[in-house]
Design a protein around this nucleic acid. Structure first.
Lengths: 166, 166
DNA sequence: TTGTTTCGCGCAATATTATTTCAAGAATGC
DNA sequence: GCATTCTTGAAATAATATTGCGCGAAACAA
């Protein structure tokens, strides 16, 4: 059920829905060159198999009053598994933290944060993040401007790669 | 036309579509408590006003064969505006670079990269990124595991904030 | 207050789309 | 070669999106 591999049409579907997640199934079917019913079945299968995790509107944070975006590099005192997942759970409870990734190297985690303004972020930083259990160090960098923000994966690279093996 | 502010229903719509971008308009209307036609009109208005930039399927990179995710911190030799935007344009042409944000502080840019495997990334790193014009330093960190990856903004925080002013 | 304008709503009608059903063609395995 | 399995596409049906329009509430003017 999940071990099934993807054929070129599946990958086209994924690429199209990554680019426009609200496309109608009729339009999608037209683009990938099959009729609507099998196209819809493929989409459902891709969803159930976990290739598609969900669909999200990309909202403009600034327009909504979130003027500040920050990357925070966090180092912990202890890297024991329990302590790592404790910190991850803290992050899950902090709405200002939108992403949390565990890294190798000097830093243990990188956090992507948003906030309405700098003082809101500073309050969060000092009262929540820095003062959390097990947090040893936090280094933050404000995002001055965004230059690229593409979703997901580059299917072009995937196709290239597959055509070489084949 | 664009200067119009958002009312609570607009924000509910945004929150719902951020959580599930493929929700039908009928379902969306039900959730925000109005009938379908005005709901659809609001969605269109939000799209045109730029509050909604687009919709994207959230695809599982690992399942698609992109085993490697990396954050790269890039320092440039020159931070003159021309050189900054030159580098940004380079990033836009690199499919493995999914995001590029300009930062304050020691580092000039943070890049989020994906690749099918480590060697593909290493090749990109040494032959493209590190050796690009004006690039002074690159420090990379592999993502060991992802703990949180929520889209967009926390509308809860926005509502909190608005209820205090009101 | 009263008249007027403006705005956004929802009903109803229509156009599109999603979804189910099913028979037939391709791929796979024995 | 033949049966099994899968997937497709046409057709029918259900659901959804979209348009047109009249109504009532809020904003505004006098």
């Amino acid at each position: 059920m999940a071990g099934s591999k993807l054929d070129p049409i599946d990958r086209m579907i994924l690429a199209e829905l990554q680019a426009d997640g609200r496309m109608t199934n009729v339009e999608l079917a037209k683009r990938v060159g099959i009729s609507a019913p099998p196209c819809l079945r493929r989409v459902r299968t891709l969803e159930e198999a976990g290739y598609i995790r969900g669909y999200h509107a990309d909202v403009d944070a600034r327009a909504l009053g979130f003027e500040v975006q920050v990357y925070a590099m966090v180092g912990l005192v202890s890297q024991a598994e329990v302590d790592l997942s404790d910190f991850e759970n803290l992050c899950k409870d902090w709405p200002l933290v939108r992403e949390c990734h565990m890294l190798n190297g000097e830093v243990d985690f990188i956090l992507k944060c948003v906030a309405p303004d700098l003082s809101t972020f500073q309050t969060f930083l000092t009262e929540q993040l820095t003062s959390a259990d097990n947090v040893a160090s936090v280094k933050t960098s404000l995002v001055i401007r965004g230059a690229k923000d593409d979703p997901g994966v580059p299917f072009e690279v995937l196709e290239e790669r597959l055509s070489q093996t084949a």
